[in-house]
């Protein structure tokens, strides 16, 4: 009975965590200010691709630009993003937009469902660094 009670509590915690997390609305860059719930004056989770040559690291602060469907959004993040963060990869940034810049407090790197062998001979630019490939 004790285990069963624990299970019910765990289920409740999971559901509330999911709902609490959903408060940070999940938006693509081009939906900010247009899609309902993606207003630029609230906390958001914004999904976009890191623009090539836009990543700059200055005294512990990382700035970069994310794009989606042609729309761009500059991001400032205190610290260095973890995971496999690099240009041309889709990311999800949690934060709030201040003066047109997304002040991110959490950066997560999204991985596509494509798997390709690493090839050191490949020199051509990453073909996936095109808008709308998230």
């Amino acid at each position: 009975m004790l285990v069963l009670g624990g299970v019910l509590v765990a289920g409740g915690v999971i559901v509330t965590q999911f709902l609490g997390s959903a408060v940070d609305y999940y938006c693509n860059v081009d939906e900010i200010g247009t899609r309902s719930g993606c207003d630029d004056d609230r906390r958001l989770r914004v999904q976009g691709t890191v623009e090539a040559d836009s990543v700059e690291l200055d005294r512990g602060t990382t700035t970069f630009v994310i794009t989606f469907n042609g729309a761009e959004l500059p991001v400032r993040y205190e610290g260095e993003p973890g995971g496999i963060f690099k240009e041309c990869l889709p990311v999800v940034v949690h934060g709030q937009i201040v003066d047109g810049t997304l002040e991110g407090d959490r950066v997560e790197v999204k991985h596509s469902e494509e798997y390709e062998a690493a090839n050191e001979d490949r020199l051509e630019p990453d073909p996936r660094c095109e808008p709308g490939t998230v």
């Binding site: 289920g11 999971i14 790197v109």
Partner: peptide, 19 residues
């Protein structure tokens, strides 16, 4: 942790799997 940069995230797949 290695690819996304976080161990856990309360997103749809992870939440439903935990459930």
């Amino acid at each position: 942790r290695l690819t996304w940069g976080v161990f856990w995230q309360w997103d749809a797949r992870l939440t439903t799997t935990a459930l």
